[in-house]
Nucleic acid binder design. Structure first.
Lengths: 191, 191
DNA sequence: AGAAAAGGAATGAACGTTCATTCCGTATTG
DNA sequence: CAATACGGAATGAACGTTCATTCCTTTTCT
């Protein structure tokens, strides 16, 4: 394929560098360099760095959500759905470390925090499969009856921590450890 | 105005600004300003910004560890010790949001990652109460027999996530919710 | 008075962004 | 068909800003 679009090259380079060095450690000049384009070219595709980061995130959502939802069967039990989703999430992170590191940077930045605020406080709709699952879990009394946000933290806190430690090389996750971790998360949220 | 040492003022100002805006959003000039000192004065107390950040972290450890260990009784059961420690930790974060936000920034930065690498990979000794507790927990078969790092993530992942959400205003933690959260963490790590 | 501490303007490096210019594929002309 | 004109895409040197750090003057302390 002759056409790795310039934009695609920029997106790839930006994701890599931001994942590796954070927003402030990834100057536009360096991104342009790695993408093999001129510094000014980036501004033909993105209004400025801030907008570029937001677009990077949107692209990433569009790529990752379908993968994570793949094979999800809403008819199964709460427990099975939970395990499936958490495993899919953890696997996605392990297989796409650049995406994971970028997400960490994003959600630790002011933009990410604001994004989350909008989502929690109503407005936005996102990967609502999770929300539905947890609401079902509570009303069917298979999960603890505590605020949704805390339930999320109990489930995703460990997933994110474990993914980070794997990617940083502090542990080597295999199938067995993934299963252990996800089941331990279930122990945390189950009633 | 006898006491508040210049150094203390600088530390306070730096902690606040870094907690609020991150390392890159807290220029030395702004720190000097808030501390009520000249820009050059900072360099009489800290060799440079990097060293200052490391010192800030060490100061913070010295202040927080004693508070968290307070009232810890090594004779009690694993479960009781775990609950005590996690509650103390979560309470400390809630009562010292500036410290918490600084720690988040620190551990998301290259320095923090390197610090953690040293600690996990042997060399350093830190708040070893936790390590001891978890090793006891495994050998006494009251905790899951999985790698220590994962056990840490299962316990602290949710604690940190919940503390963050509280400080960002996404939930309002009270005594009841703190207890719920910590007990859910126990459900995650217990055998 | 002399030494130590504090101050803040000066410095130079690094950054995001701009813009005059170049490049290149396509349309137009003779 | 060859030569020329055109226009949007791409470029990267240059700009203005911001930052950490230095340096020299002023203030404070003994």
């Amino acid at each position: 394929m002759s056409k790795p679009d310039k934009r695609d090259e920029i997106v790839r380079a930006a994701l890599e560098l931001i994942a590796e060095h954070g927003f402030h450690g990834a100057p536009m000049a360096m991104i342009a360099d790695r993408a093999g384009v001129g510094a000014g070219t980036i501004y033909r595709y993105f209004e400025n760095k801030e907008v570029m980061i937001a677009d990077l995130y949107r692209d990433l959502e569009d790529r990752s959500f379908p993968v994570i939802k793949e094979g999800y069967e809403p008819e199964k039990t709460i427990r099975e759905r939970f395990l499936h989703l958490c495993q899919a999430l953890l696997r996605y992170f392990i297989e796409n470390p650049v995406d994971f590191r970028f997400l960490e940077q994003f959600f630790n930045s002011p933009y990410g925090v604001e994004y989350r605020r909008d989502k929690i406080m109503g407005k936005k709709e996102g990967c609502d499969i999770f929300r539905e699952l947890f609401e079902d879990g509570i009303s069917q009394k298979s999960m603890k009856d505590i605020p949704l946000v805390i339930l999320f933290d109990l489930a995703f806190g460990p997933i994110l921590a474990v993914a980070r430690d794997h990617i940083l090389g502090f542990i080597a996750l295999d199938e067995v450890l993934i299963t252990c971790t996800v089941e331990a998360c279930w122990d945390g949220v189950r009633r």
